[in-house]
Amino acid sequence: MSQVADQAYLNTRVSVMAARLFAPGLIERLAHLPLSALADEFGLAALLDDQAAPAARRRAVEQSLFQLLLSELLVLTHAMNAGERALVLDWGRKYALYNLKTLIRGKLHELDRSEINDNLFELPAHIRLPDKELFGAENVLELLRRLEAGPQRQIARQAREVYEQQREPFALEATIDQRYFVGLVRRVQVFDEPHRQWLRRLISAELDRIGLLWLLRFRFTYGLSPSETYYWLVPSMRLLTRERLLHLVGLDGFEQVLEALPEPLRTRCADCRSIAEIQPRLARHSLDEIRLVLARSPSAVARALAYLMLREADLFRLFAVIQGRLLGFDDRIIQHALAQIEPGVPGS
């Protein structure tokens, strides 16, 4: 079967689903919509029932939007082969890792079981961690040892070793994030052309964004040494490659790093004075790249993943507006929050 015929079903699925993405006009309008209009437009009336407490409504909406995203993810995986499915499910497993981080933080701060539970995402079986078993762990080390017995053993082993040596949550969470992205990069490498080229572009859009943010944060906010900063970064396959990161972490000032960035990041981040200013610009850059993959890629799996990333960003936007409304914020603050939405980061 030819490449086109092989991909036809998934491509058609993605094209049909892409019609659900928010049009630019709707994104503009979102910040000005009252709660009732949001409920009507997105069918969330039952969840935004006035009788429930704001926190319960916020939680219900959040869960519902994640369920929607993950159900679309599972629909798309039905039309994929084993390798494609594994990549897309791995991408979705970041929510399982958010749950893991929540569990770790909960155990570190000795939080009540129900308090931890309230902050976990409800995930489908393909993606979720054995939360019930992990709950039974008495401390972080025991939790990670239990996790080592499952499919997340690579991440868990590394995280445990780091935690045993350093005993601090930063190293633990940085390891989890790093292992997650390294795993994604490794998945992409096994694809043939043209999938690999477009998947690399897609994943690199994410890696360039988080790579620069982490670099600036670790180097100039946390004051880590160049070597340690470099160690925690995950080189991208397009702009912030290994060699470029090695050069950038050695620079001593914020402005110097921005100056030394490759194009188009340098133009995008020109005249920025803080990480907060850089963040929305990098988010725009990533989203533009992802949209380009969705529009032009001949690889159906790359398009499917691009669709999921954009859909995720849309749902984050919607959630941000609803949350803002529930907390009684005005349009200006909500609009500002919308500009901060980054792909792949809930609650950003």
């Binding site: 590394q158 070793e161 040494s225 160049p226 070597s227 160690y231 290994r242 972490v249």
Partner: peptide
């Protein structure tokens, strides 16, 4: 060192 960390560690120690 775990094999998967080798390449990243190589770059990091070079910086030191």
């Amino acid at each position: 060192v775990p094999r998967e960390n080798l390449r990243q560690l190589e770059g990091a120690v070079a910086l030191a």
